[in-house]
């Protein structure tokens, strides 16, 4: 699944980037490397972009970017420590 389709409130792990060139470089530099866990937290009332927590920072990405980020959704499991 692509990051675009990650439901709000859930977390996903980056599997790979399908972007090329400059876009790929930019996404990597933001910390979107395979294995990184991201959380979709809110969507703009105008429908796009969507804000994600990426390595501790809230970043808004347009669908033009998130369509090139493959993620696997992590099953919702409450962390006992933080419950």
């Amino acid at each position: 699944m692509y990051l675009t389709n990650l439901p709000l409130g859930s977390k996903g792990r980056v599997v790979k980037l399908t972007a090329k060139g400059k876009k790929r470089r930019r996404l990597l530099d933001l910390g979107l490397i395979p294995g990184t866990v991201v959380e979709a937290i809110r969507r703009s009332p105008s429908g796009d972009p969507t804000a994600y927590i990426i390595r501790g920072t809230v970043l808004a990405l347009r669908s033009e970017e998130t369509n090139f980020i493959e993620v696997e959704e992590l099953t919702q499991r409450r962390d006992i420590l933080w419950a």
Partner: peptide, 11 residues
């Protein structure tokens, strides 16, 4: 076309 865009929503 619009170029790629990242916006930080700082605390």
């Amino acid at each position: 076309v619009p170029s790629s865009f990242t916006l930080e929503l700082p605390p």
